[in-house]
Design a protein around this nucleic acid. Sequence first.
RNA 1: CGGGGCGUAGCGCAGCCUGGUAGCGCAUCUGGUUUGGGACCAGAGGGUCGCAAGUUCGAAUCUUGCCGCCCCGACCA
Length: 442
Amino acid sequence: MRLSRFFLPVLKETPSDAQIVSHQLMLRAGMIRQEAAGIYAWLPLGLRVLRKIEKIVREEQDRAGAVELLMPTLQPADLWRESGRYDDYGKEMLRIVDRHERDLLYGPTNEEMITEIFRGYCRSYKDLPKILYHIQWKFRDEIRPRFGVMRGREFLMKDAYSFDLDYESAVKAYNKMFVAYLNTFARMGLKSVPMRADTGPIGGKLSHEFIILAETGESEVFCDSRLVDMPAPGEVDFDGDLQPLVDQRTALYAATEEMHDAARFESEVPETRRLSARGIEVGHIFNFGTKYSEPMKALVTGPDGKDTPVHMGSYGVGVSRLLGAIIEASHDENGVIWPEAVAPFGAGVINMRAGDEACDAASADVYAKLDAAGLEPFLDDTNERAGAKFATMDLIGVPYQVVIGPRGLKEGKVEVKIRASGERHELSLEDAVNRLVEGAFK
RNA sequence: CGGGGCGUAGCGCAGCCUGGUAGCGCAUCUGGUUUGGGACCAGAGGGUCGCAAGUUCGAAUCUUGCCGCCCCGACCA
């Protein structure tokens, strides 16, 4: 992508209504634009990152054996009357009446609808187990939206739902998502900590929140510090026994404020490892048994010929919130520092003197080679001054910058700057390209 | 929903108390000089001061109502 063709409305000054750094940087880098309280338009740069995050979430869901589908944002109220949640959910649910006076709602979540879909087709225990998911926009009419995409009213969420014959089998699905989540967040450069959580209005007994530690987090959390640096499981056999991997983590103390037990914390965790911090919830998994399948009559016939309600679980990831969480975890005074896996562009190319024949030619050459190698380069081919170009490239957080100017070019050199460390390397044009393509700077 | 604050040009703000020609910085446009860390000079455009009603000869400024946004608390991916 060339900057001259792109749509990148960067702001020099920080808009006054943004309080936390991720919100400020998302506005300044031209990633989002607020259209109403808690409702944002995704500008091209923000959308690119959102898609990267979505892709990682999708790949890890698929790897864990979940199957993607897509449900509508609008749902009939009757479905929610079946589960009893039409009345329970309260004002957070946006209720809509259509021209025929039919009650609809903009889905805040999809347990009812997925249960309806499941019961429409699956009658036998032989259809089980199943995990279905989608990545879709949700609306919750929050009392107080805040912090940009961290607590928006409209937000992108991955929600998965599992269906099993019994509790034991449902725990296996739960464990799959548990492990998949650890891998998902790790791929985005985040250290996530699974914590015992309250099940809230969704109901059920087994539940964990996945928390990213950050000063600006909304929840207070307490955990054994060993959990924070425990590496993600990585390659695992999702059909194998995941219980040891889960136990290894759940054995260590970790709880959010509402589940915190100070006495237990102090007795189980040695003082040096007691970590109390703030965190951002980026994922939440639940097992809720037959809470929906029973009232909604999602029954399967078991091997014994008897009908039983399926055991279900639901598993959410705040996809749009993750942008905020990643920025909170990775930025400096100059802007965002994207982990490579989610960076909107793989490498930036700064043409220091657009219009200069040699600079134009060298920039085009580097750009073409990086592009051919699949690095998704971003070329600043504008007439801005050097300082402005550096500032913009730093702000939008591109992991590597190739600086091509007349000064270096005289000696056949370009400069590669690593955004995260600030390190610079003077290299020949070929070396710069080759080493970027090889990933030599990682 | 309770408490607090704000709404003036695309962005950041001043002006309001004490009513009388709507201003500054950045951004934008034109011309020129510049060009390795957010340039300089000269000129130009852009605002029914959130909306409505009231008070007044006269309202950005005072009063009332409404709307929107932000912050603090109880809830949530």
